[in-house]
Amino acid sequence: MTWTKSAKLAFSGAVWFVSAQIGVCAEPAIPTERNPLPDVRSAQESRQSDTIASVKVALDKTESLKRRVDAISSLGGVKFDYLLANGEGLVASDAPIAKAVVTVIGSEIAMLPSSEGHAHGGEGDDQYTRYQNTLVERSEKLLRSALSHPDFDVRLEASNILTARGDPQAIVAIDTMIQKGELKAQAGIGYMSLAPADIASPFVEKYLTADNDESRAAAVAQLAYNPRYVEQVRGIALADGTPPNVVAAALPGLSASDPTFLEYGVAIANDESATVKEREAALAASANVLLSRQDSSPDFVKKLSSTLKQASTEVGTRTAIETIESLERGVRE
């Protein structure tokens, strides 16, 4: 049988189409950077065939979703280099696959410093330090690419991991989710707080003037612990017309960071016009301050405890009563 050129092209095209449908794919990429520690290298070499088989399953779109996710989940530890080498395509895959990759990466680099920091390793471990730096850089690059994934859960998972590592790009991604209505501000601000305060606080600050009370409450709850924002948050908490939930949210942080807290915390606890929520929060925060101050005179502690006990009786809730019982136990001890 003689094949014409057009027939050969048609046949090769059909073979390509069928091959694509049955999942024939290129061999898994081999890591260009490998762990230099001899024991680890030995373990990698002994498991190489098993590792490559797992990567093939992960890459094969004809495999069941469960098998692919299970294969990805197995690519931690000494197999992690292979996941990074093949991670770009996997992170761009459907949501379950991408999320599995993001989760493994997060687990593997959880105890390692960010690419802006210094890798672990003692003096003289230059080769290992370089390896760790490369591993972290490649991991964070894949996580940043996941920030653009169409699936919300994938983006959120990657954002949480990167935010905890102080990555401003991840905080921007969380803020974008809030603005789009994909994520409630209260939850988003909580995720932002995983980052160091000096990185997260400027992003949280704008929510101090948000239109809804829940967003403002979440913002003051975080920023009240930051000494740079004490004056601003105190002003919000003491301003006329501030919603009760915003006041209550600000008090725990202010009690920890504001040396003048007792001057107004006790007053709020005794304010009969304040809501129960505000008075309970003020009672708890004032009691904590009183117990933590070692330089207070016994007479001062006794007087203030009596004042707070009276406020607790007026509020009359179980929470208020338990707060004073705890305070009295702490004072006796």
Rank of each mutant, 00 (worst) to 15 (best):
Q179K: 15
V102N: 07
G188Y: 10
L208Q: 03
R68I: 03
R228N: 13
S139W: 04
E328Q: 15
P202C: 01
R318L: 06
V315Y: 03
V247P: 01
S12H: 02
R318Y: 03
A217T: 03
D50Q: 15
A185P: 11
I97K: 01
K277N: 12
A146P: 02
A249K: 11
N212V: 12
E137H: 08
A282M: 07
A14Q: 11
I72S: 07
K5W: 04
L75V: 06
D258C: 02
R318Q: 12
E231C: 00
M192C: 06
A200S: 15
A7L: 11
A200T: 05
S12V: 09
A110D: 10
V40L: 09
L327E: 12
V266N: 06
G122T: 06
V315C: 04
I109Y: 04
G235C: 08
D271A: 07
K61L: 13
A119I: 02
Q310P: 00
Q44V: 10
T32A: 12
S326P: 00
A287S: 15
A311N: 09
Q179N: 11
E108Q: 15
L262G: 01
H118S: 14
A197H: 06
F80Q: 05
A20Q: 12
A43D: 08
I22F: 05
S93W: 06
S145D: 11
E325G: 00
L291H: 09
G121I: 03
D81H: 09
Y82D: 09
D211I: 02
E140C: 05
T51D: 02
V276I: 13
I174C: 07
A43C: 00
Y128N: 02
